[in-house]
């Protein structure tokens, strides 16, 4: 905890220097970030941004708990979103809403399972299969919204809008869904044999094998959960405003990478992942407020996040070194 505080202060200090270098007042800028993130005007935005980030962080934390890195979150997220739109456009009414969510989950789960099977059957590392499969998925979605699913009335690469009854017009349903998933993850992790076995695998692959844990089956199962959740996040975002799939809209905000960092930072611990993800989300949404009020580009908050993680990674490495001197 002390480490976190110290590194946080160090990152803030570095950020202050950067801010001062651009001619801004660091204190004002930081104040703008805080009020922007948690003030009455900004809190809604923070929550809206936190939903996909927390969702993706949890999605990537699930396999990470067993020491497996899913680098293909972007592809799974995008496939989930486009599948939800495809279904939502054709199935009307409340049923369409459910069907769209299910389609998103299935698309993400199936796609991530393919990457898992590539490792367990073909021996290509998961890190690589997930990453490489991500790009074709993004290209596929980009193709769909340019040709077969394109909104004819627009020059942008985007799909048609969902019908009015297949929409999340408010934040609450998505927020509730993701929160429920986080709770389920925390409970499964701490209180079930399956969660225990996942943690055992994370402690050491050889220990897990020795203890009788079936790694290939676990890999496929965890990746299916991970991809399914990423797909759900995609579906939730797609069902929300502006109720359509816009090419790149899920990639540019860096939900996946920020989520991955939150998960890595918390060593995939459910609660820690949640806290880290919310913190990053707040920082990012505060960045918009800072840009409005001080003219400092909001990208600075992305810099702050990355610097914070670099400091934390180095600090935990140092602690580990001290604990077991070579």
């Amino acid at each position: 905890m002390k480490t976190v505080a110290v590194t946080l202060l160090a990152a803030l200090a570095l950020g202050a220097i950067l801010l001062a270098a651009t001619g801004a007042n660091p204190l004002e800028a930081y104040q703008a970030i805080v009020t922007g993130a948690f003030g009455p005007d900004g809190f809604q935005d923070t929550l809206a941004y936190a939903v996909p980030v927390v969702g993706m962080a949890t999605a990537l934390a699930i396999p990470l708990r067993a020491g497996m890195v899913n680098l293909g979150g972007e592809g799974q997220l995008v496939l989930g979103a486009i599948s939800a739109i495809a279904v939502g456009l054709h199935v009307p009414g409340p049923l369409g809403l459910v069907a769209a969510l299910v389609a998103g989950v299935l698309a993400g789960a199936l796609y991530a399972s393919i990457a898992a099977v590539c490792e367990t059957r073909l021996g290509v590392p998961l890190l690589v299969t997930t990453l490489l499969l991500s790009y074709p998925a993004m290209s596929f979605a980009a193709y769909l919204v340019r040709f077969p699913m394109r909104d004819e009335g627009s020059s942008l690469p985007q799909s048609d809008q969902l019908p009015a009854d297949v929409r999340f017009t408010e934040l609450a349903p998505g927020l509730f869904l993701i929160a429920a998933v986080v709770v389920v993850y925390a409970v499964v992790d701490a209180r079930t044999p399956a969660g225990f076995e996942t943690r055992v695998t994370g402690w050491g692959p050889r220990f897990a094998q020795y203890a009788g844990i079936d790694r290939p089956a676990l890999t496929v199962r965890l990746l299916a959960c991970s991809g399914g959740l990423a797909g759900l996040v995609g579906a939730v975002v797609a069902l929300g405003f502006p109720y359509r799939f816009i090419d790149g809209a899920l990639i540019t905000p860096q939900y996946t990478w920020i989520g991955l960092l939150a998960a890595l930072l918390a060593a995939a611990n459910p609660l820690g992942t949640l806290v880290a993800a919310v913190f990053f989300a707040a920082l990012t949404s505060g960045g918009f407020a800072m840009e409005r009020e001080t003219q400092v580009p909001r990208e600075l908050t992305a810099v702050l996040q990355a610097v914070l993680i670099i400091f934390l990674a180095a600090a935990t490495g140092l602690l580990r070194k001290r604990r077991n001197p070579a």
Partner: peptide, 27 residues
């Protein structure tokens, strides 16, 4: 510095360094 001197995890650092590059260049 982060990995060799401090012993930080190379994957965590790598992901953060990539993210930092995007943020820094956009900034």
């Amino acid at each position: 510095v982060g990995h060799v001197s401090f012993g930080g995890d190379a994957i965590v650092l790598g992901v953060a360094i990539n993210l930092l590059a995007v943020g820094l260049t956009s900034f």
